[in-house]
Amino acid sequence: MAMPLTTTHRVFNFSSGPAVLPEAVLREAQRDLFEFPGAGMSVMEMSHRSKPFDRILEGAEATLREVAGIPDTHAVLFLQGGASLQFSMLPMNLLTAGASADYVITGVWGEKAIAEARKVGAVRVAGSTEAGGFRRVPRQDELDLDPSAAFVHVTTNNTIYGSQWRAMPDVGSVPLVVDASSDIFSAPMDVARYGVIYAGAQKNLGPSGVTLVIVRKDLLARSSPSLPTMLNYAVHAEQGSRYNTPNTFGIYILGLVAAWMRAEGGLAALGVRNARKAATLYAEIDRTGFYRGHAEVESRSLMNVTFRLRDESLEDAFAKAATAEGLDGLKGHRSVGGLRASMYNAFPEAGVEALVHFMREFERTHG
């Protein structure tokens, strides 16, 4: 029996993740969902060791390497478990016996990362902005870095507080490791500078369920054979991300997103567009004082714009009215309240313009 057709209406999705995907990617996936070209079956049905999936996985990696400038010195892994598993997996692989690692804490995710690392080995807090409510990232002169550390861990962008590193700190010769889940490839990135970059895919790269890990190949030697197999970077690198069955459909979508990024002009063009979107919204927040930004100006995120109303009692009404107007996902994280507009790579500029128009109308009627 055929299912009845329904009329759909896509809203502007400001959710922090899982987040908006490029419309072109969704349409291509929809077209190929029933039968992937040349395979006679859906991507969700094919073996992860089949030749059609070989093309999908190898194509996704090759396109990512091209778009992001990932050098041959780094392995690209498609894993599972999200960034939260990397909080444990990273120190298990890189924090060798007798060594210590430095963590810079700029929000909840950094706190969670160091809490898991403490279960593995010795760690130090090399810098923190907790005392100021995580409204900014530290200055270089505020960091207490150990030149003999196994690695330095930084969270590049803080979804909850709306702060972002505009430039990575200088950590000398120590491997720089970053959780880039919420701003990965939102602008050009010198991948060669990093020991490890990891990110859950569900914000800028694809659907939830895929975790991208980019690791410098020389660091794979630190992965001890005594580690559980599924937690060993070296094993996953040797097996081409297919020691076990990976998230095949998620990798397929990630490959489509990488191709979309290339078609949009690459990371440089996306960076310009993302900066323009954020500047438009911050200008409205700063315009009259009816709204106020949470993060300090020099640390403001281009991905997650966090703000409050001067009269905080109006915030629930704002979020509900915005949702009714097709502006979804604007309520702030439950731990800090307020409002948050997440605007990742695929979020359209028309959505920012619609939000600004709504904000002005809300101010007119409630100001």
Rank of each mutant, 00 (worst) to 15 (best):
V257A: 05
T6D: 10
G98V: 11
N13Y: 05
L355G: 04
L205Q: 08
D179L: 14
V272P: 01
L256A: 11
R10A: 15
T155Y: 02
A295Y: 03
E349L: 12
L327K: 12
S148T: 02
M89A: 08
V297S: 10
G127K: 03
L281I: 13
D72Q: 08
E353S: 09
I251T: 06
E116S: 15
S84E: 15
V305P: 00
A97I: 02
A167W: 11
E298T: 05
H294L: 10
T106Q: 02
F12K: 05
E238L: 07
F249Q: 04
M261V: 08
R31K: 10
E23L: 04
R193M: 09
Y344P: 02
H236Y: 02
M168R: 06
K331H: 06
R334S: 12
T229H: 07
G133M: 07
A317Q: 14
S50Y: 06
L314S: 03
V272E: 12
V336N: 10
P207R: 15
E363I: 05
D190V: 14
E296Y: 04
S173M: 13
P147F: 07
S47F: 13
L176C: 10
E142Q: 14
L355Y: 05
A29E: 11
A321R: 15
G240D: 12
K119Q: 14
A319H: 07
L21I: 09
A62W: 09
L57Q: 11
A263D: 14
S182M: 09
Q140S: 12
T7P: 03
R166L: 07
V336E: 00
D102K: 11
H48F: 12
Y282A: 03
R242I: 07
V174K: 08
A354W: 06
I114T: 05
S42K: 13
R65Q: 03
A324C: 03
V305I: 13
F290S: 01
L270P: 00
A122R: 13
E298N: 06
E312A: 10
A350L: 04
G40L: 07
G172N: 03
R139C: 10
M46C: 03
L281G: 04
V178T: 04
G69M: 12
S16V: 06
S223L: 08
V210R: 07
H366W: 10
E353N: 08
S299M: 07
G351L: 08
E284C: 09
M303V: 06
R31Q: 05
R124T: 13
P246H: 08
L231Y: 01
E28K: 11
L254V: 15
G81Q: 12
V120Y: 06
R360P: 00
M3K: 14
M261L: 13
F185V: 11
S100T: 15
L95R: 06
N247V: 03
I114V: 12
R193G: 04
L339M: 15
G133L: 07
N232K: 10
T6H: 13
G40D: 10
P169M: 01
Q80L: 04
S16K: 01
R55I: 10
L145N: 08
V11A: 12
F151M: 11
S181Y: 06
